[in-house]
């Protein structure tokens, strides 16, 4: 769909346009929000809210960039807003509580914002290439975990090794990937999103 039609669809409140944007961007937007807010459930809520806010304010939205950067900027703003609110409410400790088992990360207020100028050929290919260079066992564990979305215990079962060994392979794999992908870090996710 050409950009103009998407913007028109957004403004007119066309359900199909919104759904197609959900399908294309929901998962990367969630990953993006999660690097700031830490929790998966919160990230999902922020992304859903962002879409809903756009729909509610559709009559007055103005998009001067690409739809993609518009969405990421909006999710970024909402994630920071959430963190500020969280700080004010002094419930940051919640991150370290037992109940929030979903934490992928502790929140870190980052100062970078999405920039249009960052353009990368194909970060997925970079990831695939870097992963392909890992030693066999590490590679297998990493693929099962991140490309197939397996639980640690499932990876252990499939590979016939202990969960501890799986975690060790994954730890070594991510360290090597860090070394081999250092040119794209720390804004790896941005490269992908702004492609």
């Amino acid at each position: 769909m050409p950009t103009n039609n998407i913007i028109k669809g957004l403004i007119l409140g066309d359900e199909k346009t919104y759904i197609s944007l959900f399908r294309e961007y929901y998962v990367p937007l969630c990953a993006y929000s999660r690097r700031y807010v830490g929790r998966k459930d919160v990230a999902e809520e922020i992304v859903s809210d962002t879409f809903l806010k756009i729909w509610e304010n559709r009559a007055s939205i103005q998009i001067n960039t690409s739809i993609k950067s518009y969405l990421f900027q909006a999710v970024y703003n909402n994630s920071l807003y959430y963190l500020r609110k969280l700080k004010n409410e002094a419930i940051l400790e919640d991150y370290f509580s037992n109940t929030a088992s979903e934490n992928i990360a502790f929140s870190t207020l980052a100062d970078e914002t999405p920039e249009e100028s960052l353009v990368m050929d194909d970060i997925n290919t970079r990831i695939e290439e870097a992963v392909a260079q890992l030693p066999d066992q590490q590679q297998k564990a990493f693929r099962l975990k991140r490309f197939d979305g397996r639980k640690n215990a499932e990876v252990a079962k499939i590979m016939g090794i202990s969960v501890k060994t799986v975690e060790m392979h994954l730890a070594k794999a991510t360290l090597t990937l860090r070394k081999n992908l250092k040119d794209y870090l720390p804004s790896f996710l941005l490269f992908l999103l702004l492609k």
């Binding site: 919104y18 759904i19 959900f22 399908r23 929901y26 998962v27 990367p28 969630c30 990953a31 993006y32 999660r34 690097r35 998966k40 990230a43 999902e44 992304v47 859903s48 879409f51 809903l52 729909w55 992928i104 990360a105 970060i123 997925n124 990831i127 992963v131 990493f142 975990k145 991140r146 490309f147 197939d148 979305g149 991510t174 360290l175 990937l177 860090r178 992908l181 250092k182 870090l185 720390p186 804004s187 790896f188 996710l189 992908l192």
Partner: peptide, 27 residues
């Protein structure tokens, strides 16, 4: 850095199981 690699590498297969269908349904 490691968090970045982790999050990005799982996007394409939705390895972290973000619930797209439910989000669309709610929307």
């Amino acid at each position: 850095d490691l968090r970045e690699i982790w999050l990005t590498s799982g996007i394409q297969s939705n390895a972290d199981e973000y619930n797209l269908e439910q989000a669309i349904f709610r929307f």
